[in-house]
Write a protein that binds this DNA or RNA. Sequence first.
RNA 1: GGAGAAAUGGCAGAGUGGUCGAAUGCACUGGUCUUGAAAACCAGCGAGGGUCACACCUCCGGGGGUUCGAAUCCCUCUUUCUCCGCCA
Length: 423
Amino acid sequence: MLQVAFIRENKNAVINGLAKRNIDATEMINDVITLDEDRRNLQTQLDNTKAESNALSKEIGNLFKSGEVQKANVLKEKTTQLKDTVKTLEQELNEKADALNELLYKIPNVPNEIVPAGNTDEDNEEVYREGDIPTLFDGALPHWELAKKYDIIDFELGNKITGAGFPVYKGKGAKLQRALITYFLDKNTEAGYTEIQVPHLVNEASGFGTGQLPDKEGQMYHVTADNLYLIPTAEVPATNIFRDTIQNEDELPKAITGYTPCFRREAGSYGAHVRGLNRLHQFDKVEILRVEHPDKSYEALDGMVEHVKGILKELKLPYRILRLCGGDLGFTSALTYDFEVFSTAQDRWLEISSVSNFETFQANRLKLRFKNNEGRNELCHTLNGSSLALPRVLAGILENYQTEDGIKIPDVLVPYTGFDTIS
RNA sequence: GGAGAAAUGGCAGAGUGGUCGAAUGCACUGGUCUUGAAAACCAGCGAGGGUCACACCUCCGGGGGUUCGAAUCCCUCUUUCUCCGCCA
């Protein structure tokens, strides 16, 4: 969430920034400022009352010590009155603070200057494109047909075991998937990211820390018996590693990478766009994540984009990079680049990576800080990205690398798969 | 799952219900000394709110209670450790 002090000092910039998301935040921002003023007034009153009460208590203690019980009893009555005042003030203060927080939770991050205004994915700005779109032979198939033809992914079997959106990968399909995971992790590790393995279920506090709660409650699978959530992305457990920590400035940046399955309810999705591997309830993803000094986070974001580009180049997949417009930008993000691979047989682009800078938006909730040179604690910037999401990369490979004799495996993956064709 | 013990600052570890935000040691930062370093000595050293800055307020695992006053007493939750049971 945004910092109140920041909103107070940059009121107009915040309102103008949020306008890019097609939100008129004027009223919300004014409410924040009023609530915050009220809160601070109450806090001061409460503090003063408590100070008075504390002083009296001390005096009472001294009087008891010196045996002046009667005097002490007189003071006791005074403190009783103060206690009532404290109670009322505390209640009012809590109400204000809760109202303020509730409001703050609802305000999304302020987009970076270079984020284009816009409503839908049509307004996203293409900033880069690379790779030739192959011309496929007559009779080329979309990946779900290929999956069936070569018996490498079984969607029906997944339906039987769990339900729609939980495919079973078989034989060379399973092996290719595992090869991709290992390949991605290796590339990320080479680039300086430390590999980690994290829990696939998280508690409520972690959900709030990264902003999935309360914003996207309905999108996560909730294990009610233990009040845990299945992770929608490794971002949640990985970022929460840093919750409530104070980093040393000279130990920044922190860069980690991890593979996890991701679970998403995808309530409201339907139709041809969810066909095959396009949209699943469970899928695999390798994530990269950075904790950065505020001065260096945009440089780091560019570095992450370059890193993902390098991987796609090696895989020889046609892709493009979009700068998301305000309307398409995630709740917590200040700037996001989406990578899309071209699915030749479907004749459409598939999102395979999303690389974002959250600036202090997550760090504020997480209380993720660093001690700066002056010894003061300051919020870090957090960034993350997919490197990469598996199913759609898989779809891209299957479709773009298909030949009449089978599916070729990209050269860089052959050492990982141990075979060069699926036939 | 059952029984018992515990939870204090970066770490270790004191703390009879009253002057404790908390002893002490280590670590860390600055200084003296030294050609330099080490050692020694001196000083500083948790977080949040609040203020122009002070003052002041809050925090001793989380939440609630008793009391004029709680790190200290009571309830509850969570976590850790030991023993038993079960088990990849």
